[in-house]
Design a binder for these strands. Structure first.
Lengths: 157, 157
DNA sequence: CTTACATAGGTGCATATGCAAGTTATTGGA
DNA sequence: TCCAATAACTTGCATATGCACCTATGTAAG
């Protein structure tokens, strides 16, 4: 079968994401945060006070998707959207004190999952895998993908 | 920063999934199917008439999640849930004729995305990546992950 | 200034998924 | 035969996300 779904890069990626997501979610469960939420808070902390767009780009998310996803986090007081005084259109995302405290709580939990991941999968191997995955999210890859065989497709974007 | 979110295996996996999902979705758009839906239909065809549980395991999905995800596909007539005469609890998922026709339609589209993926990423490299991702979904990995450092955590499952 | 356009976000709608609970059908004993 | 433990689903609720569309704001031309 040339169209064997078991060779579909997208399907395999999704399956791995489901499993790993489950494992990280389970590890973070005691904190009440999902792995995705923890990732967002940690990324905001690292970036300072990014705008919606900046955070969306960094996380490879759709701007509107991010808008939805942030709702539970702002509702629970971990993040706040502050209007930028320079540009009335911009909202800067800031980590609240409650958010920082929560991140302090999750540090050990996340670290535990991360360490177990590397212990089981292998440190070097994990680094290599993340490197490959990061390449997939690079604009070079996206552009090359969209250009390849473009003649036979309708040009988008 | 030891807790740099850019090194989170889960986060990086999710980001890659979003991007690749977007690319495959775009490629399949003319058919009206999402990449996930196409994957499900193709998997059902390959498996014959799997039960919910069998399909859930194969796709690394939660049984209830699968139940939800199948709704649009049964609603649109691509799949049908047939009660198993042997066991009243079981529902066998069958691809309808409409589903087969649709899969015929998507064959070229999916193939195009898959080929472009391998052309850009590299055939060998793609095979290797999928192999690594498949390992992450294996029960061996899951068990090892859950056992590692289990002493310090509440035993689950 | 005023208009045309580009930017940053927000909303509605729809799919994708997982967990906790509830329902129904099986099955392994006592 | 009847019950307790299981197994296979379904449903309600909540988060995760993307697309199309709408609004407000900023900006470059005229």
């Amino acid at each position: 079968m040339t169209n064997d779904p078991s060779t579909c890069s997208n399907a395999v990626l999704r399956q791995a994401m489901r499993r790993i997501g489950q494992l990280y979610d389970e590890a973070l469960a005691p904190s009440g945060l999902r792995a995705t939420q923890h990732g967002l808070l940690a990324t905001v902390r690292k970036m300072g006070s990014p705008t919606m767009r900046e955070l969306a780009e960094r996380t490879v998310m759709d701007l509107s998707g991010l808008s939805h996803t942030l709702k539970p986090l702002t509702r629970d007081g971990y993040l706040e959207l502050v209007p930028d005084p320079r540009d009335g259109r911009v909202r800067r995302i800031t980590l609240t004190e409650k958010g920082e405290i929560k991140l302090g709580e999750t540090a050990k939990l996340w670290r535990g999952a991360q360490d177990r991941f590397e212990a089981v999968f292998g440190k070097e191997r994990a680094v290599a895998l993340r490197s490959e995955l990061r390449f997939l999210t690079s604009p070079e890859f996206q552009d090359a993908f969209n250009d390849t065989g473009a003649e036979t497709r309708t040009v988008t974007r």
